[in-house]
Nucleic acid binder design. Structure first.
Lengths: 158, 158
DNA sequence: GAGGGGGTACTCGGATAAATAGTGTCCGAGTCAGTGTGG
DNA sequence: CCACACTGACTCGGACACTATTTATCCGAGTACCCCCTC
């Protein structure tokens, strides 16, 4: 999985604590990561409609929906793409004992097993929302943690 | 996920139908894939102890256990490695508002969500055995399918 | 003092290179089967 | 006829190139704010 997923999720969580848009540069220095590369991830989120982008002097990125309406799966699919990890190359239709194409009306057993596992993975990610993550952050580090981040994002210099 | 996982699984399924060892070359031409690269996957299975390798004239690969005792997860971890897809880089400990290390006794919320999803994925793959796959192949293409493959693997020329 | 126009600085967005993991290939080390020879 | 040693060919195993994906970077297009000028 792309490492940018982690960055994107952290950005979504901190964006729950602010109202206005936050520039990519600010998000990058908060997390001490490459601004240029983080921009790419945020663009992916924007293309997926999870965040809105605003240009100009007071521009930046902001969540488009309630944090409870954005799932972790949404972010993962936006950044990594919606394609499943396993792709069947139809080996059964190759070689000297190839299964004829007309017998291949359903996916092969291996593909079915992989698809089932992939569905379980996605279901687990779909059951967790950004709001859940933000709540857990508060539970882990105290209610003031996100508030401090919010203040730094909107106001502080350096 | 590495595409070699699919090849390895197909090999394991067909190996359930034969008694003696089968050379990698024979498995490769059955599936019409690169023999050299398939060898790499089979070596991984051998390192993991799922198959035994025998050298010499009548050598090859054979399953070491009952097909019902080998799970799809075993094969996936043997070929792709046991590492989870998501790796936390501890972003929370970086940047101007870094969380102090002594407060990071448990994984962060994002990592917990990813770990849970990964566990669900692995549980699904663990619940399917190679024997299950072989049985499904019989159900899909008729009981004679695996028998024909077995005969070709052990006897036929070209 | 209020409204409008222009400048400016800041933002995103996509196009462009380096690094890394995955894919594919090759040749050498090791080993078993078969064969020929000697007893 | 049996046992042994040898030959030979076939097997795996790891080391070596090539390609695709991921990672990282840069510069141009666009836009909202702010200042200044005019009325």
């Amino acid at each position: 999985m792309s490492g940018g997923v982690e960055w994107a999720l952290h950005c979504c969580v901190v964006l729950t604590s602010v109202d206005g848009p936050v520039p990519a540069t600010r998000l990058a220095e908060l997390h001490d990561v490459s601004a240029s590369y983080l921009a790419k991830q945020l663009q992916a989120l924007s293309r997926a409609g999870l965040v809105s982008s605003a240009q100009g002097k007071a521009g930046g990125y902001a969540l488009t929906r309630e944090p409870s309406a954005i799932t972790v799966l949404d972010v993962v699919e936006a950044v990594d793409g919606p394609a499943p990890a396993f792709t069947c190359t139809e080996i059964r239709q190759r070689g000297p004992l190839a299964t004829p194409a007309e017998s291949c009306t359903v996916p092969c057993a291996i593909t079915r097993a992989m698809t089932t596992a992939d569905a379980a993975w996605r279901a687990a990610l779909r059951s967790v929302s950004i709001a859940d993550l933000a709540r857990d952050v508060g539970a882990d580090y105290g209610p003031g943690a996100l508030r401090r981040i919010s203040g730094w994002l909107t106001g502080a210099e350096g």
